[in-house]
Design a protein around this nucleic acid. Sequence first.
DNA 1: GTAAACCCTATAGTCAACTCTAGGTCAAGC
DNA 2: GCTTGACCTAGAGTTGACTATAGGGTTTAC
Lengths: 139, 139
Amino acid sequence: MMKIFTIGEVAKELNLTVYTLRYYDKEGLMPFVERAANGTRLFKESDIGALKIIECLKASGMPIKEIKNFIDWCSDGDSTLQKRYDMFMERKATVEAQMEELKKTMEVIEHKCFYYKTALDAGTEDIHKTDKIEIPIPN
Amino acid sequence: MMKIFTIGEVAKELNLTVYTLRYYDKEGLMPFVERAANGTRLFKESDIGALKIIECLKASGMPIKEIKNFIDWCSDGDSTLQKRYDMFMERKATVEAQMEELKKTMEVIEHKCFYYKTALDAGTEDIHKTDKIEIPIPN
DNA sequence: GTAAACCCTATAGTCAACTCTAGGTCAAGC
DNA sequence: GCTTGACCTAGAGTTGACTATAGGGTTTAC
């Protein structure tokens, strides 16, 4: 009925290595994953969902130790709802800031693309350097 | 006439530490910075400009070794114009990809903000879980 | 004239996030 | 029944990017 996945299958699905998944587990990011009698991890569909959230937090630049805090809060139930809400609101703000930052980075890069396009057309970078030569004020 | 800056001034201006700047120098990112007789680095206005480009490349996710390649190309003159153009075009593509990625991350985070907002209003996370209870098909 | 506040090099240490190795278990296929 | 391949743990090693320390030199402020 409920499909169970091995660590290898989950790794493939999420584009991670099994090493990484085991490392996350060791760091306490996956307390919800159950085990077979022999120790083999048994991933449920919902575990993969949780890992996707972890990946999202990682993509937002959150360090693993902070992600662990969040996971702990999830285990603690409703008493931590406010904390979790606040955390996501804060994440939202930092991602917004990152977007702004990236936009600025993009502007500089686009300017450089243009710079090198014209230099390439002219065959030399000097075309930009001569731009900047200060014209001596005639008497 | 032409203002010269110390490593400390440059560090402050670019929000880096002097350690970081010296580390960059050691990694070959600043071959253009001249030295006083006693070894003190003398930064020109244009050096700060170059460092801003380096910061931009760093912000785009480029590792320091690759930035060094670019700096080397700059020292090699016009023969490397094509490489440099190609590099910035590639950077542009990766930054675009990062923006896409961030947008997806943002969507998930916003969804979670909403999820926790409603949970908080309801006083329990169960409001979302009960959503998903499969209604047993009556006979 | 000396202490503070810079500068320098060389080298060691730190940190996060993996990544791999050694040594072992277990199930499936031939 | 034994090899192959996937799983396990504990722990060591790697990488990138700093960050700090030790030891030493100059310039500035009192």
